[in-house]
Each structure stands twice: as structure tokens, then as C-alpha cells.
Simulated scan of single mutants.
Amino acid sequence: MAKMIVMYDQPKDVEGFEQYYHEVHIPLVEKVPNIKGAKVQRVLQAMNTTEKLYLIAELEFENPAVLSQSLATPEFQEVQRDLANIMKYLNKPPVVVIVD
């Protein structure tokens, strides 16, 4: 199994972020091939950090090779391009990690 984890800080425009994220960004992500599972969780509390984490999204794939293949697809490239649109609601880009 492999996961892509995306961590968003507190948005500068919470209402705009929520609307855009759920109505535009998530539908783009849902088109990415080979996703086995997905979760979006609101952060209630973060410890041992000064980051003001707001939201964490997890995308699960069969294995690292499948994840890599999915990242190379036109569908994922569209998700990447959409980051420019979502940035108007954020103070800084989300942190993205890939784990196995």
C-alpha cells in the first residue's frame, strides 16, 4: 500500500476554500485512476508544531508503483494545475507527503 497525504494550513478564506475544495477540487481528484480509498479529515488539534493545520486528505493506492503511475496521468496533472486556483484561499501551499 502507498498513500499520498496532503496537509492544508488554516485558510485565509475558510468559506471560499471549503466551497472550492468540495465543489471543484475533490471532483478533479476523484477522476485520478487507481485510487483505492480517500479520506478528508478536519484537524481538531496539532501538537508539537506551530503549524495551524486545518485539513488532511489521504489518497490510498495499491502500492508505490501504482501511485507513481497515477501521478503521471493527465487526470493528476489537472489536479496539480488546480493548485494555482485553490491558492487564492490559502496562505501557503499544502504540504504533500508520500508514504508506504
Rank of each mutant, 00 (worst) to 15 (best):
M1P: 04
A2T: 10
K3L: 00
M4F: 05
I5K: 12
V6P: 13
Y8S: 08
P11H: 08
K12R: 13
D13I: 02
E15N: 09
E15Y: 03
F17G: 07
V24C: 01
V24H: 12
H25R: 09
V29S: 02
E30V: 07
V32W: 07
V32D: 05
P33T: 01
P33F: 10
I35K: 03
I35G: 00
G37M: 04
G37T: 01
A38Y: 09
K39C: 01
K39W: 13
K39S: 10
R42W: 06
R42Y: 12
L44G: 11
L44Y: 15
Q45E: 11
Q45P: 01
M47T: 14
T49K: 07
T49S: 15
T50Q: 09
E51M: 12
K52Q: 15
L53G: 12
Y54G: 06
L55Y: 08
L55N: 03
I56C: 13
A57T: 13
A57K: 08
E58L: 05
L59A: 04
E60N: 03
N63L: 04
N63H: 12
N63E: 04
L67Q: 09
Q69Y: 07
S70P: 10
T73C: 07
P74D: 14
E78C: 04
V79K: 15
R81Q: 14
N85E: 06
M87E: 13
K88C: 04
K88W: 03
Y89E: 06
L90I: 05
P93Y: 00
P94E: 00
P94Q: 00
I98C: 01
